[in-house]
Every structure is written in C-alpha cells, then in structure tokens.
C-alpha cells in the first residue's frame, strides 16, 4: 500500500495500473484468454486516491472493472494476470477470471459482475465493521448501478443503520466540459444529478473530477476520515471521461501503448485520443503538473515507468508460464469444508 501524498508513489501506482491494463489488452488480442473484460485506463487516479486512505481492517468492493481497484489495494499483478488467463497461479485458481477477481486477504472478499450486485454486500461488510468496531468499506461501482433497485435498497440500509461505508460511483462517460459543471448523467437515469439520489436518503454526497488526481486525493482523504470518525455513509460521484480505447465492444489500444512523451510535447496522431489525453487523462495531467511544480523530474518519472513496465512484463511471463488448473479443480470449493478455520 502506498504512502499518502507522495508524488512518486502516486505516479507509480497509476502507471502500474495503466501498464497492467495494456498488457491485458495485448494478451486478449493475442488470444490468450477468452471472453469479455473491462479495463481501468482513464480512471486510475480514483482507485489510487481511495485506496491510499485504507488500512488492513478496511474492505473494498468492486465490479467487472476491478483490475485497478485490486492493484491499488496491493494485489500482486502476476497472480492477477494468471487469474485473468484462467491459470492455476491466479487468486481463484482460474475460477473467477477477470470478472470476479477478489483477494480476501486484502479485504476484497468477493467481486460481483452484476450491475449493483456488490452494493448490498458492501453494506453488510460495513455492518460487520460497525459491530466489530474497526474498519470501513469503500464500494466502487459504475453509474449504471443507480438504475438497479439493489443500489437504493443498500443505501437505505446504510443510511438507516448508520454504517461506515463510502459509496464511490465512477461515472465514466461524461464529456470533459461537463465534468466540473456536472450537468450531465451518463446513465439512463432521469435524475439531474446522480448525487441527488443518495441525498434524498440523507446520505451526504459530493462530486469530484476524476481527471484531477490532487482533487481526488483531497476528497478521499476527507471523506474516508469522516466515514471513519462519524461511522456514517458518504457518497461520491467521480466524474470521468471515457478513454477512447474503451468505446469498442472489446478494449483496444488506440495508437499502441501510452507514451510518456505524450505528456511532454508529443501527440498521438488520433484526434480523439489526443483530445482525451489533453483534457481527461488523470495520469498525464498529474505528471505534467507535478513535473512543472518540481515535485518529480522527467527522469524520475521515466524510471518509474520503466519499473512499472518491467513489473507487468514479469506478470505476463508468470501468467503465461503458470499451468492451467487440473480438471478436478472444477469440483473444489463448491461449499466450504465444515471445520475449516475461518
């Protein structure tokens, strides 16, 4: 887990997620794993800021877009990549794949790939935290979750029972001009503002720009502290603009892997990507800002990137080398063994 407010650690954490996701896309294109998957490119600053506030007693809940949340929480990229490939070396021995990736020992007990599916679970974990007198819950979900009844019902309980949970709605389809103004909901939800909904249930809410790593760090620092000290729920809408590579049905790398030079004068030759980078890429915008402010040198950033790339290349090697589980594995873990220590 990263040290709070250290620019080098923050950059490293974001770079690790981006480089991991790029490898994931390349492996899929290479036919190394079947099925649908979702990447976190363009939202890295959110998971990094939120997880920087968490300790070992805290819980994180996620959804199909979980790679970034898990990496920020401290999961091992090699075991994650092995899981994505359905290999025996994965966290769930290949049973979850990308969709349900979870790491119990890091406080991520289960990942639902159903819209809104994890919100009641996260609320229950917050109830456990309250009973046990330690820990808080951060629940990440997309904007469509607000279309599901489960979401309302979970928020009702969190408010009524006064539970220590931070609902993090990652609204990832907002045009850049509207990120700050917030006049737009991307989902098919007829609410003027997503935050109006939890507010009506007496949950304190705010919205934050998902492309502004500093604003996110300030926001999560404050909100997680409030949840911790007051033991009541909060709701934050993180307004992000979708990365162009996430528009096709299957993720794609527009103009190949992300380049550090794009933060410092160069530009990719695809207009939509260039615009997104300039206006909406939390990683690029933070790098520019921190280098201009003298918090990090370009060389230091370069070194961090090389380290992240090397780490993820290693994760790919580990995953490719890991064997597939034996067929008998399919029959393991249908039920927990009685008497097993919990």
């Amino acid at each position: 887990m990263q040290r709070k407010n250290d620019p080098g650690e923050r950059v490293a954490a974001m770079l690790r997620i981006r480089r991991f996701e790029e490898q994931c896309i390349l492996l899929s294109k290479d036919g190394q794993f079947p099925g649908h998957y979702h990447v976190y490119i363009g939202q890295e600053a959110t998971a990094v800021a939120a997880c920087a506030e968490l300790g070992t007693d805290d819980f994180v809940f996620s959804n199909w877009r979980n790679h970034g949340h898990l990496l920020a929480r401290g999961a091992a990229p090699d075991r994650m990549m092995a899981e994505i490939l359905g290999k025996a070396g994965g966290y769930a021995r290949g049973k979850s794949g990308t969709l349900h990736m979870a790491v119990r020992e890091l406080g991520v007990p289960a990942t639902s790939a159903l819209v809104g599916g994890s919100l009641p679970l996260a609320t229950g974990a917050a109830l456990a935290c309250k009973r046990q007198g330690r820990g808080v819950v951060v629940a990440f979900f997309g904007d469509a979750a607000l279309e599901e009844g489960a979401c309302y019902e979970a928020m009702i309980l969190a408010s009524l029972w006064k539970l220590p949970i931070l609902f993090v709605c990652e609204n990832n389809s907002i045009p850049p001009a509207q990120r700050q103004r917030g006049q737009y909901t991307s989902s098919t939800l007829p609410a003027a503002q997503l935050v109006d909904v939890p507010q009506a249930l007496q949950i304190r809410t705010e919205a934050v720009d998902g492309a502004d790593a500093d604003a996110l760090a300030e926001c999560f620092d404050r909100l997680v502290a409030e949840v911790r000290s007051e033991g009541t729920p909060r709701f934050v809408e993180v307004r992000c603009t979708r990365w162009p590579g996430n528009f096709p049905l299957w993720p794609e790398l527009p103009c190949g892997q992300w380049q550090l030079d794009w933060a410092f004068g160069q530009s990719p030759d695809r207009a939509d990507l260039a615009t997104w980078l300039e206006q909406s890429d939390p990683l690029l915008l933070y790098l520019r800002k921190i280098v201009a402010a003298g918090g990090l040198t370009r060389e230091q950033v370069q070194a961090l990137d090389e380290r992240a790339r090397a780490e993820m290349a290693g994760a790919v090697r580990f995953a490719l080398d890991s064997p597939f589980p034996a067929p008998e594995e399919a029959y393991q873990h249908v039920r927990a063994e009685q008497g097993a220590t919990l």
Binding site: G86, G94, G97, F324, P327, E329, A330, Y331
Partner: peptide, 16 residues
C-alpha cells in the same frame, strides 16, 4: 452439468 458453479478457466468449463 455436474452440480458446481461454472468456472471461468477454459479447461474447467470444458470439464463441465
């Protein structure tokens, strides 16, 4: 299909 949930990993799914 045996009485187990459907796993992701291709050889495990094939088993079922």
């Amino acid at each position: 299909v045996p009485d187990v949930p459907v796993p992701f990993s291709p050889p495990l799914e094939a088993e079922l």
